[in-house]
Design a protein around this nucleic acid. Sequence first.
DNA 1: GCTTGACCTCAAGTTAAGTTGAGCTTGTAG
DNA 2: CTACAAGCTCAACTTAACTTGAGGTCAAGC
Lengths: 148, 148
Amino acid sequence: MAPATELTVGQVAMRSGVAVSALHFYETRGLIRSHRTSGNQRRYGRDVLRRVAIIKVAQEVGISLAEIGEALASLPESRTPTRDDWGLLSTAWRDALDHKIAQLKKLRDGLSDCIGCGCMSIDKCPLRNKGDRLANEGAGARRLLVGP
Amino acid sequence: MAPATELTVGQVAMRSGVAVSALHFYETRGLIRSHRTSGNQRRYGRDVLRRVAIIKVAQEVGISLAEIGEALASLPESRTPTRDDWGLLSTAWRDALDHKIAQLKKLRDGLSDCIGCGCMSIDKCPLRNKGDRLANEGAGARRLLVGP
DNA sequence: GCTTGACCTCAAGTTAAGTTGAGCTTGTAG
DNA sequence: CTACAAGCTCAACTTAACTTGAGGTCAAGC
């Protein structure tokens, strides 16, 4: 049979470029899964590499681990995800990205018109008042907004 | 003379849509300045509204307060910034935004090709290996990267 | 058979960006 | 002139996303 391509945390860390502690952390957050050897050590299937890659990619565009977790939760947990499973994810992500790109463009184009003029007195500033997402309440740091 | 348009924290909070506590916080971080009345209360010049607006706008696109602070530090601290002063900032910002938009597009376009294929085995994945900014070390949360 | 490096768990620390609360002072409207 | 809303300071708490450290286990080489 083909080589039993089980990976240890260390190997996954190596190959994915994320720290072992981060992998542990992702596991507690349910973003990745492992099974254990008789000696209680983690072993990962190959698909964990893809998952981790996606986690990092998504994070780089400002999507929170919680949201990534939700998306990844749509993958089947019993079997190894198929190409189609991943495809669904891809589509969902693409929409979020399109949205975010549009948002950034709006900001960029608004910015140079706006920043030098008097409109920053807030009331009439198009930057501030278009798609205004302020004033969501609650404590702690604010997340970078992404969704609709 | 024209009305002495000094603003209290409360007024700035109202007009800018950020909490009083946030304004205090920005001040400790050097993002905005105030002078005090004889009774030790803060008073702000009108330009603080523009500063705050810019802070929020920049934050929305994922720029950290530290970076915003650096940019704002380029403004003259003695006199009220002129249109040209703001213009410089605007230009710098625009570049950062262009960069970020490009990055997002690369991700978006790479994603659907990439996510469903086998290339996520990291070594050869174009998403992971182009402009790879991993492995900056140090503790704590990672900032969303923006700059060059 | 022992040593050395990889693992494990769990608790506590860190950074960013604020918020919340306590206890005290100001200022303004009646 | 006295309420009472608005300010002030300072310390502690919050969330996200991890890292660091302590104290103990596993496994592979010599």
